[in-house]
Design a protein around this nucleic acid. Structure first.
Lengths: 198, 198
DNA sequence: CCAGGGTTGATACGATCGTATCAATGATTG
DNA sequence: CAATCATTGATACGATCGTATCAACCCTGG
């Protein structure tokens, strides 16, 4: 069978993400997800049993997709040894620049809102990725500071947290149509220039 | 009658916000809102006719409540002439520090997610408040820069946008439980100290 | 006094939801 | 080859949704 044993799961989860990105996560029912994925309702039940499990699996799938994109972007970075290059790649990836990443951000935010009041979703490792990212950025900034590329007066951990906050905040403003993604990128580079120029 | 002619509307809308803050906006139906507000379903229908209009009114009500809080905080600021004091007040208010502001942020974010795919909600003046805030902050930063309190190398408009992005991003991280609100406040002050110290 | 319109309550309708049930199919294996 | 088991389809059930309908109420003005 093509695609491995869980190609069907992937097919359904792709449908869920696609539908949630186009019409909103709240329109995702067992039936609409099945229709979007081109399968029957029973099949969705067969693979995920309950809607709650479907939603949880959808969140995991989303995390997998985003990790894949980030990994690909890092792999294609110009200079993987230069901290600033890597930081720029990570933060740029975090902005909803194209349709796919816009979908990621929108659906992820929808999940986050649900998790704020749903204990089952809240129990998911919702913050593992951001936490890892923050540690990762902190390490990069420490490296840059040790190499004299960053002013010694800066606090790498605090700057890492602020960078992610800036990226998330700008991403949201792009999502809501307050700003074009190019403008968000410009602001991000402005902020990075300030950091690295001292 | 006490509270004016639309005390009932306010009572229902308060119920909507309270319910959305506790159980999520997706659990707000005509019936659950009526129960939370302590009125009958028919009453909710009478005042808002349709759920869509109820949701729109809820968003307006939320904006009113947030504006009230911000105004109160600005009025009680130590020195209303000092740009940094005012900026700190505005951005601190934007963080979910207490239960009420946590509810505001959560429900506002839920609305934002809905608006991303719902044309009726998207037509609401969703970005007017952030846009106004950004202009307001830009003006304050320009004033501070003219007074020599801010380095001339900084771009007031860009810094204002970044400040709001930082505030929004930190607020989200607090909402998701990634950080305590005190830590977010600390990071915000760290960022402001960098700005104003040159 | 009482008539009439703004308010409130009880209830019903069709649609859609998550979930469960019962077969039919298809591939695999002894 | 046949039997078994995973997979797929069709359909039904109770609950809840938004909305609509039909009275009853209350309060005020003539």
């Amino acid at each position: 069978m093509p695609g491995g044993p869980d190609a069907r799961r992937t097919q359904i989860l792709d449908g869920l993400i696609r539908l949630a990105g186009r019409q909103g996560l709240h329109t995702a029912s067992m039936r609409t997800v099945a229709a979007e994925a081109g399968v029957s309702l029973r099949l969705v039940q067969y693979y995920f049993e309950t809607k709650e499990k479907l939603l949880v699996a959808g969140l995991e799938h989303l995390a997998t997709l985003m990790t894949g994109r980030l990994t690909a972007r890092l792999a294609s970075a110009d200079d993987r040894e230069d901290p600033r290059t890597v930081i720029e790649a990570v933060l740029t990836e975090a902005l909803p620049t194209d349709y796919e990443s816009r979908v990621f951000h929108l659906v992820y935010t929808a999940y986050a809102v649900l998790a704020a009041t749903d204990p089952v979703l809240a129990a998911q490792p919702f913050l593992r990725a951001p936490d890892e990212m923050e540690r990762f950025l902190t390490g990069l900034l420490q490296t840059a500071r040790s190499a004299g590329r960053l002013p010694a007066s800066l606090d790498p951990a605090a700057e890492a947290a602020l960078l992610l906050a800036v990226s998330a905040g700008l991403g949201t403003s792009v999502l809501l149509g307050q700003r074009a993604s190019e403008e968000a990128m410009r602001l991000l580079h402005y902020h990075l220039d300030k950091l690295f120029s001292g």
